[in-house]
Design a protein around this nucleic acid. Structure first.
Lengths: 155, 155
DNA sequence: CGTTGATAGTCAACTCACTTGACTTATTTT
DNA sequence: AAAATAAGTCAAGTGAGTTGACTATCAACG
């Protein structure tokens, strides 16, 4: 009677928490080794997201994506600007908006971060295979959809 | 040509982050409705974990599970004790240790939290089916295993 | 046994990352 | 043109962790 894997008995939110930490730790230590050791926690999402989307975004979008207040997002951007990862440039067409852009340093850091992330992705793929990765994505995506719907139904 | 689901293009750590928020929001709002509105963030893990394991644990174990310092864990327990969710009792056999126990209030809150969690689990199961849930667990468990191994190899 | 070292936890001060509240400037609506 | 809305800032406060220094208890070994 083979015993079932340990994670069958662990509650899903705890699994999510610790799984995320695997990525976090890997990205952070890769960045530190490359000399980018002053990126605040959510900065990873800002830099990574900016590099990925390849378009420069206004602050309000970060607010939405991170689920924090605009003041919080502003301070986060402040920190990343003063450390040389981001730049702010005013939007021509709507002068209220400030567009957030990656600097060269920001792009370099994003690249290091991306490599680290992809290394984890690759190892996961090797271990559990394409189908299970797809299933995992599906599960996670579904959970996220559920919250969107709950939020809508509460309006 | 059917378009692929949105989450195929989203980076896994971001999926993990937002998926966890679904559970977090659901548990927190259920607890608030039931009058337990003063539980600090990580308190959910302490109370839930304590209720689940059904054994009373020393502080050092919380330290390990939460991945925080013992001082941090101490403060968290302080907060939960002063709000009536936990009690500390000295261990007879090792008088250095303080055992952390759920109070009645703590157990009641854990029950509410558990119901909320299981509601999400159930809806997820309905939507994606047993196999995909299993695959998701496997993926998450594997990610967590990977970090354990990396940590060991760095010693 | 008694000293030496490790383990469990505490106290105090600090930091970081956010929050709330009040405001300014620009844009849209009527 | 006035009112309402939206993007962002400034300032002060808070929550949740950190580091550093300490006490109390236990284990191990000559």
């Amino acid at each position: 009677m083979q015993d079932k894997p340990w994670y069958e008995d662990v509650v899903i939110p705890a699994l999510l928490r610790h799984a995320r930490t695997t990525y976090g730790k890997a990205m952070r230590s890769a960045l530190e080794e490359a000399g980018y050791d002053d990126i605040p926690a959510n900065g990873l999402y800002v830099i990574g997201g900016l590099a990925l989307s390849d378009r420069d975004v206004p602050l309000r979008q970060l607010v939405h994506e991170l689920g924090i207040t605009k003041q919080g997002a502003g301070q986060l951007v402040d920190a990343l600007v003063s450390r040389g990862y981001l730049a702010r440039t005013p939007d021509k067409t709507d002068r209220r908006q400030l567009i957030v852009t990656l600097t060269d340093r920001g792009r370099a850091a994003a690249e290091v971060q991306k490599k680290a992330r992809e290394r984890i992705d690759r190892e996961l793929l090797e271990r559990i295979g394409e189908d299970d990765v797809r299933s995992m994505r599906r599960g996670l995506g579904t959970l996220i959809d559920m919250r969107r719907e709950e939020a809508e139904s509460r309006e």
